[in-house]
């Protein structure tokens, strides 16, 4: 009897363990399911002196336009959305982004070379294999906390 229970418990733990990385990368959504966040990931940081970068996609499943207006993260003393631009001379610059409008049914991507979550004043390093909470702030007052997995510093996308 006890053995069976232990075995069941063991397989449950295995299932939970295996499910963990999946849970972190699967979609995360607002309570009414109108805002869906997918493929969050961040690069591991070198200590805390340099800003970290994180990426994700946001889908608007609602019937109204919403804007992503900012970020909040305990791990960062100053989190904001930045945009990288490369001009015709091939010079890249980076600046805080304006509010990003997502039309109903639309999607925006924070991805390398475009928008990114800029995590300045890191309170602790972003360590590969760990996760951290990041809150997305929207124009309708929605605050959506998501879990961001930290990938290697050489990661190229949500798959590593």
């Amino acid at each position: 009897m006890f053995k069976t229970f232990a075995k069941a418990f063991q397989s449950l733990s295995v299932a939970l363990l295996m499910g963990l990385p999946l849970a972190a990368s699967a979609q995360q959504m607002s309570e009414d399911a109108s805002i869906v966040v997918e493929k969050p990931w961040a690069r591991a940081s070198l200590g805390t002196s340099r800003p970290g970068g994180a990426y994700l996609t946001v889908r608007n499943e609602g019937s109204e336009s919403i804007s992503l207006i900012g970020l909040r993260a305990e791990i960062s003393g100053m989190a904001s959305i930045h945009e990288t631009r490369t001009n015709s001379d091939g010079v890249s610059s980076m600046a805080p982004a304006d509010d990003i409008v997502i039309p109903p049914g639309g999607m925006i991507a924070l991805e390398p070379g475009g928008y990114h979550a800029m995590l300045m004043q890191l309170q602790s390093p972003l360590v590969e294999g760990e996760t951290f909470p990041l809150t997305l702030l929207f124009s309708d007052g929605t605050e959506l906390e998501i879990t961001v997995p930290v990938l290697g510093i050489g990661a190229r996308g949500p798959e590593g």
Partner: peptide
């Protein structure tokens, strides 16, 4: 090296 986006990419 303090570049969070373009350089690591």
């Amino acid at each position: 090296t303090y570049c969070p986006d373009v350089c690591p990419t």
